[in-house]
Each structure stands twice: as structure tokens, then as C-alpha cells.
């Protein structure tokens, strides 16, 4: 089982370290041809406008949508959550349009409003330390989306089948439980998808 981390821009090395700590083989992915050998992929935090442009430039838009159609899991953190969303609040267009949700960018404000907090997550026993950096929020979700975590009445983590997204940065701490959760999703999916 091999999980990729989309390495166009952002915190790639931290995700690779966390995935490995959660027991998976992890690789950085710069070209769409490399998707074929993967069982799942993480779209990391970074600047969503930059990642969004490079995704289009290098043919990842259709390639990742196709990856998802095969039932292979995708995990978006922060900017990655924005990339996965169907709709971005205040913008005419979105990126991959895979997850049935409306997201708002920089929803907590500027960098000085960035924070960390203990956050309970459905499916994980004890709260995890969640680091929010100029973080987005999930404003609305469709009926097929399972809300995994709420902070101050706003949705900050959600799952829709083989798609997982969170507003914060699990890769910036030494707590690997959310990555382990995703690794389990990938394991589950490899049983049903054919390579």
C-alpha cells in the first residue's frame, strides 16, 4: 500500500513523515503519471491559489478526479480541503469539486488570528491538538457528508465516503492518529478497488 503526497507546493515532508509514522509507505508526487501506482493521496496545506493553479497547469485536475472515481481515498488538509470542495464561498469556480461542501477561505482572519487548540474528532478517542493557520471552514455540507469535528459551531473536519478533509494541520504535531485514520481508509479501499 502506497500513499502519495501532492508535492506542487506546501508542507509535503511533514505529511510523509506522519504517514510513515502511521505505518504507510509515502511518496512525494510531482507528476500526474505517478498517480497510477498509488492507493491514496494527501493534498497538503500550502497556498490554495498556488496549488490550484499548478494542479491545472500539470494536468492534475482530471487526473485526480479520475483517481477519486476509482474509489481511491483523498485527504485534504487546510488548502487541500479547499482543493477538494464543490464550492468556495465568494468565488465562481472551485478546484476538484469532489466533496459536497461549501468552504470559506481564511475564515478565522489573518495570521495573527491563527491558533492551536484541543479538538475532539468523531472516530478518534481522545481530542487531538489541532493547529489552525489562516484556516478555512466548511460552511455547508450535503447529506452524504459525515461531520467529524466542530469548533465554535463551525465544521472543521468531514468525511464523504473515501474523501477526508480538515481545516487544521495534523501534520504539524507528533500525534499521528488522524493520519492513521486515513491509512485505515486506504486499507479499506484497497480491498474493494482493483488496481
Amino acid at each position: 500500500m502506497k500513499i502519495g503526497v501532492l508535492a506542487l507546493q506546501g508542507a509535503v515532508a511533514e505529511h510523509i513523515r506522519s504517514l510513515e509514522a502511521a505505518g504507510a509507505e509515502a511518496v512525494a508526487v510531482k507528476r500526474m503519471e505517478e498517480l497510477a501506482e498509488l492507493d491514496g493521496i494527501v493534498i497538503p496545506g500550502g497556498e490554495s491559489t498556488t496549488i490550484g493553479k499548478l494542479i491545472r497547469k500539470y494536468g492534475f485536475l482530471e487526473a485526480l478526479q479520475d483517481f477519486s472515481k476509482q474509489g481511491k481515498p483523498l485527504f485534504g488538509t487546510c488548502a487541500g480541503l479547499i482543493i477538494l470542495a464543490d464550492k468556495i464561498d465568494g468565488q465562481d469556480d472551485a478546484h476538484l469539486k469532489l466533496m459536497d461542501m461549501v468552504v470559506a477561505r481564511n475564515a478565522f482572519g489573518r495570521q495573527r488570528e491563527s491558533f492551536e487548540t484541543d479538538l475532539p474528532i468523531k472516530g478518534i478517542n481522545e481530542p487531538i491538538r489541532a493547529v489552525f493557520i489562516r484556516a478555512p471552514l466548511i460552511k455547508e455540507v450535503g447529506s452524504s457528508v459525515d461531520v467529524l469535528s466542530v469548533y465554535n459551531d463551525e465544521i472543521v473536519a468531514a468525511r464523504q465516503g473515501h474523501l477526508l478533509a480538515c481545516s487544521f494541520h495534523p501534520e504539524l504535531t507528533d500525534d499521528f492518529r488522524l493520519h492513521a485514520y486515513f491509512v485505515d481508509m486506504v486499507k479499506e479501499a484497497t480491498k474493494t478497488t482493483t488496481k
Binding site: Q9, G10, V12, G45, E116, F132, R134, H169, L172
Partner: peptide, 14 residues
């Protein structure tokens, strides 16, 4: 420190 350094981590490769 994590929030401040983390912000810079998100700029990587940029």
C-alpha cells in the same frame, strides 16, 4: 511557536 513556524511551513516550495 508552532502556529508561527507552521505558517512558514505552508509557504514551502513557493
Amino acid at each position: 511557536s508552532r502556529v508561527k513556524r507552521g505558517m512558514a511551513e505552508m509557504q514551502k516550495g513557493g
